[in-house]
């Protein structure tokens, strides 16, 4: 234990120091034209309540929510197939597809999505060619486009967490339910899904937290029209050089993440209680 105490303390100290610096900055006044902050003030936080900024917070939570839920819906069948499939080739193909996003750089991945979603992109070309639409469908610079790309980012972690939970469910539970007369849908809803809840909660929580700090994806695909907290921080910090206000955004974002995650945790506790008959 002792061997690890020193490096652990060093890391913890570094983290705390950085956070303290940000917190400190968030409480300082902005001096236009200067990189150095002024005196202590709470103005940065009251400014956050202005509709312009509050909107970004709401959008961010909404995008995170959409992303987490969509990833869950797409990821669950993948995780299930990954765990239960008897076909080795299918399994390894799935694993490769699912894990690849982890190894693509954020910019490369996002750029690929621009190629797919753009007005002259892959999807629109096909839709136009088949005559399904006359005008290209606007995917770029929309919440939809951003969520699609973010789902791709969070898919690996979601699938891995769901697969871990699903692989711990003894097959006999499902067989028992079947023997008692439950069809496939019922078995899934009453046995498999409830027993995989720990994985669902872990996956959704992680996807949510991960998306909350997304930057490159909303920046490139949202193109300024879909803004998340990180994009706002970037604009304020590096376009307006308003470091104190950017810091207050960071602090509030962090607080919001913690609040949302603890709410999820609370909800999962309620889910784990015994279902009455």
């Amino acid at each position: 234990m002792r061997t690890f105490a020193a490096p652990a303390l060093l890391c913890a100290f570094g983290l705390v120091a950085a956070l303290a610096a940000v917190l400190q900055f968030s409480l300082r006044a902005y001096v236009p034209g200067s990189l150095d902050p002024g005196g202590f003030t709470l103005a940065n936080f009251t400014d956050l309540l202005k509709p312009l900024y509050a909107r970004v917070f709401i959008d961010t939570v909404w995008i995170c929510f959409l992303t987490a839920v969509s990833t869950l819906i797409v990821g669950y069948p993948l995780a299930y197939a990954l765990v239960r499939s008897q076909n080795a080739i299918l399994k390894s193909t799935l694993l490769v597809i699912v894990v690849t996003p982890l190894f693509l750089g954020e910019v490369v991945r996002t750029y690929s999505w621009i190629i797919v979603l753009g007005n002259n992109g892959f999807i629109n070309s096909i839709l136009l060619h088949l005559g399904i639409v006359r005008q290209p469908v606007q995917f770029m610079f929309t919440t939809f486009g951003v969520v699609v790309a973010l789902v791709h980012v969070t898919m690996p972690v979601m699938v891995i967490m769901l697969a871990a939970a699903l692989s711990h469910i003894d097959r006999d539970y499902q067989r028992a339910a079947e023997s008692l007369g439950a069809g496939p849908v019922r078995v899934f809803l009453t046995v498999t899904l409830p027993l995989s809840m720990p994985g669902v909660v872990a996956g959704v929580t992680t996807a949510f937290a991960w998306t909350f700090s997304a930057f490159a994806t909303p920046q490139l695909i949202g193109g300024g029209r879909v803004n998340m907290i990180s994009n706002l921080v970037y604009q304020l910090g590096f376009a307006s050089f308003n470091f104190p206000f950017a810091a207050s955004l960071c602090v509030t974002g962090l607080a919001l993440t913690i609040v949302v995650l603890s709410m999820l945790r609370l909800a999962s506790r309620r889910l784990e209680t015994i279902e009455p008959h």
Binding site: D170, Y173, A176
Partner: peptide, 17 residues
């Protein structure tokens, strides 16, 4: 009706459930 080697009682339900 089937009884399994490890009983396979649903852990998320009580006895009555």
């Amino acid at each position: 009706g089937m009884m399994f080697q490890n009983y396979a009682l649903f852990p998320h339900m009580n006895v009555a459930g």
